[in-house]
Design a protein around this nucleic acid. Structure first.
Length: 781
DNA sequence: GTTAGCTTAGTTTTT
DNA sequence: CTAAGCTAAC
């Protein structure tokens, strides 16, 4: 949350010789100096890409006489944007503030608010996040009588998002639908967009799509931006989706007689693309040279972060992905320590190994807690680590998981604020209609909703009608409750009209709605935490309101009439919160967070680095994830995730797995991650390779890819496609032999395809549930 | 209209 | 196992 208040740091005087490039390597320097055609910087992990970006900006300003106002730099996170701006300010001073350095989304919001009139919007529109969007989809799907099993809000939401990421609008989707699912999705899409418009709201994907739409539809608007922005830079280009790709093209322009296309510089690493599941296309970076035929490419391969051992492991793993641009990271740092491997009997054993090892490293003075990070594939894996860390009194911090702004109580409070700012915000309005309980139940809500539909009016207007007794079938008790609610909102809105600050408004909301009182009266221990979170939110709001007068983008007052919300205002607060998820709460070694071990998913780890990294849960079915095992495309993405994980480590890397891990309450035995076999054996020092008693025979029928866990010699996995399913089809009663557990009898089977499992009685070795995926070291006798 | 108990379905998630 | 969503009884 701290990122909410990142202010431009008080600028030290510009360093003399801001444009001296002596401290850059040849490639970095080429990237900084390149001029005149589109530039792709392929920046391997740890190769100093942020440095190149900021220095390039500094160079543009100092040497090429570019005005800061002509530069737009786009990132994916607010944190990255704030960091970049800060570094440029350090380099060239305050005038850097005239640049636009922001995320795709906040840049679009800024443009959309400025041009709201052009496309028939009110500038105070709400921004719906995934949760809001899903709620609206649920409402729409229900109204369309869709079977919630076949068309879950989740599924629909994924499809809608994909369409928007491809810039396909509702009508086109409808016209092009070829099967039942597509037709249904298109129907939902059409209705959903209507409801969004009615609620004066946009979802995240709309922000991009509508900006593109506007630039394409209104050449004069586009021309304004073409004239203004002469340099466009995009960070993490491998994470852009199609819509963002087109947006960049539109911002650059095709060139006019007196306005050549803007100069483009993109930076990225296809090997670190791990967000394909959200629409990111590796294509954008891979095909850059085709998209921009006169483009220049610079490759940054020298790594300034890790030891050669770590880089060798990373190179070896990622080289298994096909169709990639070959790129080999190297360092001048030297070989360094071997990677430490560990095989635990179960996840608790694995976690205590990690904890003990951390203890040892800290005791011996090799590391501080805050030098250390523990990575895992999925959030639920953090639990075992937390348990043992608590037991041992090891200070830690979990990044991610349920985020502050996603907590129910915080969302409820924010929904009130949103309704106050945008009365038509239906999703927020319906969310708080009966929260806290005030006797407006499903039935009453349905009556109001029906009324709104019949009279083609908004839900908000229908609510007022209900309060006035104009809604059919509504019982007097509900009518009174609704009247009370409408009055409550009107009362609260007066605070807004009086120009009270966000904190005061929020406080009034919590007080007058009885939300706070309800939590205080509760004896549910969870409610205590909820109360704390709300207090925290009030604090956040207060700091925001009292913050020095800067606009949400840290932008200086624009000379043009820009519809940026007034600083510290309710609208500004809402915008900030909508566009900042607090993934920025990552401890970065400063006072507040020193001495704390950091736990996070591999995804969250991207862009970070730690002297000591524990990457855990290296098991087929966990990492790579079960859902990726049977799909080569998804498997390739998991491999990139492994690459990201490995390259986060500066000096020491630990890779571990557990033989048995509880999954959904049941113990599951997972084979070693196939990625183990992709790391040259001589890079790993196995601290433990499995149960001490085990001296199993290797089964060879399916390749025996038991990973390094057996401590056997490294054997490279065959390059391409593994048939993971059906690996082995078993029935109750079958006799089997397992590498580790020996002879057993199948007592139950469950699931099909990649999810098939068998519960097997191994006699003295116990009864264990196994996944029947390709690499399970099991043979049917 | 509310709530307790049941069923069901479970990656990752920068905005 | 756990959280969320739904049905059945207060």
């Amino acid at each position: 949350m701290e990122a909410l208040f990142d202010l431009p740091s008080s600028s030290p005087p510009p360093r003399s010789g801001a444009s001296s490039l002596d401290d850059l390597n040849d490639q970095q320097r080429r990237a900084v100096e390149h001029a005149g055609s589109p530039l792709l910087v392929v920046a391997g992990a740890g190769s100093g890409k942020t440095r190149v970006l900021t220095r390039r900006i500094g160079y543009l300003l100092a040497e090429r006489r570019v005005h800061p106002g002509e530069i737009m730099a786009i990132t994916f996170t607010n944190k990255a944007a704030a960091e970049m701006k800060e570094r440029v300010v350090d380099l060239v001073g305050r005038r850097a503030n005239a640049m636009w350095v922001s995320t795709f989304h906040s840049m679009c919001v800024r443009i959309l608010r400025r041009e709201a009139k052009t496309i028939g919007l009110t500038s105070g529109f709400s921004i719906y996040d995934a949760d809001d969007s899903r709620r609206l989809i649920t409402l729409v799907a229900r109204d369309l009588d869709l079977d919630p099993k076949r068309y879950s809000a989740r599924t629909l939401s994924v499809h809608l998002s994909n369409l928007k990421n491809e810039l396909i609008d509702a009508e086109t989707a409808k016209a092009n639908a070829t099967n039942d699912l597509e037709r249904r999705v298109a129907e939902v899409y059409v209705e959903y967009q209507q409801r969004l418009a009615q609620a004066n709201a946009m979802d995240f994907d709309d922000l991009i799509m509508r900006t593109v739409e506007m630039l394409q539809l209104f050449p004069d608007v586009a021309e304004y931006y073409h004239r203004r922005f002469r340099h466009i830079m995009v960070d993490e280009y491998q994470d852009t989706n199609h819509a963002q790709y087109v947006l960049v093209r539109e911002l650059i322009g095709k060139g006019l007689p007196d306005v050549p296309p803007a100069e483009l510089c993109v930076v990225g690493d296809a090997d670190q693309s791990i967000y394909a599941f959200r629409g990111a296309t590796i294509r954008n970076i891979v095909e850059f040279e085709r998209d921009y035929p006169n483009a220049t490419t610079v490759m940054l391969e020298q790594n300034y972060r890790s030891t050669q051992t770590i880089l060798d492991a990373a190179n070896a793993v990622i080289s298994r992905n096909s169709g990639r641009r070959d790129k080999r990271l190297w360092t001048a740092h030297g070989q360094g320590e071997k990677i430490v491997g560990y095989v635990g009997d179960n996840e608790h054993d694995e976690a205590s190994f990690v904890a003990n090892e951390i203890d040892r490293l800290v005791d011996s003075g090799d590391a501080n807690n805050n030098d250390i990070a523990v990575f895992y594939r999925t959030n639920n894996q953090s639990r075992v680590f937390e348990e043992i860390f608590i037991r041992l009194g090891l200070p830690y911090r979990v990044v991610g998981g349920v985020r502050f702004y996603e907590r129910r109580e915080v969302r409820d409070a924010m929904a009130y604020l949103r309704v106050l700012a945008n009365p038509e915000d239906t999703v927020s309005l319906r969310r708080i209609l009966n929260v806290p309980k005030r006797g407006i139940g499903d039935r009453a809500e349905a009556c109001v909703s029906t009324h709104a539909e019949r009279y083609r009016t908004s839900f908000a207007a229908a609510l007022r009608d209900a309060a006035d007794g104009k809604v059919a079938m509504l019982n007097p008790r509900s009518q009174r409750a609704i009247a009370g609610f409408v009055e409550l909102l009107d009362g609260l809105r007066r605070f807004v009209d009086d120009g009270q600050d966000v904190a005061e408004i929020l406080d009034a909301v919590l007080e007058q709605t009885g939300y706070r009182a309800e939590l205080e009266a509760s004896d549910d221990p969870q409610d205590g935490t909820r109360l704390e979170n709300l207090t925290e939110l009030v604090t956040v709001a207060r700091e925001f309101a009292e913050g020095p007068g800067i606009t949400p983008d840290d932008a200086p007052p624009d000379t043009e009439a820009v519809a940026v919300p007034e600083s510290g205002s309710l609208a500004a607060f809402l915008e900030r919160v909508s566009l900042v998820a607090d993934a920025d709460s990552i401890p970065d070694g400063d006072e507040e967070s020193s001495g704390v071990v950091t736990l996070m998913t591999l995804h969250t780890a991207k862009g970070l680095e730690y002297p000591v990294v524990f990457s855990t849960g290296w098991e087929d079915g966990v990492f790579p994830h079960l859902r990726a095992l049977s799909d080569p495309v998804e498997l390739a993405e998991e491999r990139r995730l492994a690459y990201v994980g490995i390259t986060r480590a500066r000096e020491r890397l630990y890779l571990s797995r557990a033989i048995v891990r509880a999954a959904w309450g049941q113990p599951m035995s997972n084979p070693a991650s196939r990625f183990f076999a992709e790391i040259p054996a001589d890079l790993i020092d196995w601290r433990r390779t499995g149960p001490d008693r085990a001296a199993p025979t290797r089964a060879t029928t399916w390749g025996g890819r038991s990973g390094g866990g057996l401590g056997t010699t490294h054997r490279p996995a065959p390059a391409a496609k593994w048939k993971d399913t059906p690996a082995l089809s078993l029935d109750v009663g079958d006799r089997v032999n397992h590498d580790k557990y020996g002879l057993g009898t199948v007592v139950a089977t469950d699931g099909a395809g990649p999810r098939a499992t068998a519960t097997i009685d191994f006699g003295s070795s116990g009864t264990i549930r196994l996944m029947l995926i390709g690499s399970v070291p099991l043979v049917k006798l």
